[in-house]
Amino acid sequence: MKKNYQLLPTLALSLFLLGGCAKNEEVAPSITNIAVANPDFQTLEDAAIRGNVALLLGNKNPNDGGNYTVFAPTNAAFARLGLTSAQDLTGLQQPFLRNTLFYHVFSGTLPGSALTPGSSSASALAGLQRRIIRRADNSLYVNGSKILGTDVRASNGLIHPIDKVLLATGADVLNSALALNNGDVFVKPELTFLVEAVLYCNLAGALTATPGSAPITVFAPTDQAFKDLGVLLNVPLNHPKDIRKLPVSVVTSVLLNHVVGGAQGSKFTSELPESTTVLSAGGAPVVLGAFNNGVLTVKGGGNGTNVANMVIPDVQCTNGVVHVIDRVLLP
């Protein structure tokens, strides 16, 4: 059922009365209070507490007219990442969670009327911008997250509910993968096979931001995706170092099949051309499926009918966008 987010302030106001004020006088709820009052933002409330930003967003901004603007992920947005409870959030390193929440915040008032296609806005995470994108069906996105409503008013700013958590690393693709590999994002390391493969093939430079380097879109297979590939090839890939059992030329060809540049470099799901074929950095075709519920399937020429699903889409890096997928794309 579609939520009427414009009613949130009215619903929340009834819960926050000033005990010492005149009869019928009401207190406008803060951004934090709205999250607390509305069950659709329960996981956001839990994240704000663990990320130590609840108090910040419960008070006036000391700058920019006293206001913040927050792109607020719903419970369903967090659930896309497997985060459905306060306990689940402990699987994320606290500094990363805190930075992620800051990436959702604009210091000042950013009304819905200012969310124009092609524009960008600064986030409270220093130096990182978000893009506003409009699709052909007139739906509006911030990066790859659909904007479900605008201008939910709070005493200290505005809330725009969104359907996906915004993710940004503040690092290039290589160093973002290394952060996952080192357990700096999730407590449990991830992308360890991908990092080992990149080092094995001496492709680190292709994923690193350097002066004049072109932006890229990277489809990054999970560790389980590489283990599944080992079963397919009858070559046990139980440990990242096992990648070195495969010929370097083969691994190089496979890795390059996961990188797309040119016109499709640095594209969020909301921008990728659906139901079409694009060329990878290795020259082999990569098939993109239909845009459905904010994601697309991806398939290499050697995958037959087996498509890869995006498990963590739209990770913004300094030199491109990464979409974590559940299958290795074979050329």
Rank of each mutant, 00 (worst) to 15 (best):
L191N: 04
N181D: 08
R135K: 13
R98T: 15
A204I: 11
G262V: 09
V195T: 11
M310H: 11
N181W: 07
V165R: 01
N156V: 14
T210C: 09
C201K: 08
G20V: 14
G91K: 14
L7P: 04
A179D: 11
L246V: 08
A54L: 07
N182S: 15
D64I: 11
A263I: 12
L15D: 08
I216Q: 03
L203I: 12
G51N: 01
N67L: 10
L125E: 01
G65P: 08
L256Q: 07
V152W: 00
L232Q: 13
P62C: 13
Q87R: 12
G212F: 06
L199C: 06
V286N: 00
F16R: 12
K299M: 12
A168S: 11
L97D: 01
G261W: 05
N61R: 03
F16L: 14
P273Q: 08
V173P: 04
V70S: 02
K188G: 03
L329D: 01
L167M: 10
P117D: 04
V235D: 06
R50G: 06
D184Q: 14
P62Y: 00
D184T: 14
C201V: 15
V248R: 07
S145D: 00
N61C: 06
Q93N: 15
G304P: 13
M1N: 10
P313N: 02
H160C: 06
A76V: 12
A284Y: 00
E196K: 10
L255T: 04
L97A: 11
G108R: 01
A225I: 06
V250T: 15
P9I: 02
G261L: 14
A28G: 10
A225C: 08
F219T: 10
A209M: 07
A72R: 06
I31H: 00
N309P: 07
K146N: 06
L207D: 00
N238G: 15
V286Y: 00
L229P: 14
A124Q: 04
G58F: 04
L207S: 04
V254T: 08
D46P: 03
N182W: 06
T100I: 14
D151W: 07
P215C: 01
V322H: 09
V260R: 01
L256G: 03
R50D: 08
T109L: 15
F219S: 04
L246I: 13
A308K: 00
V165T: 06
S275P: 05
G108Q: 05
V105I: 13
L83Y: 03
G262A: 14
S155R: 08
K146F: 06
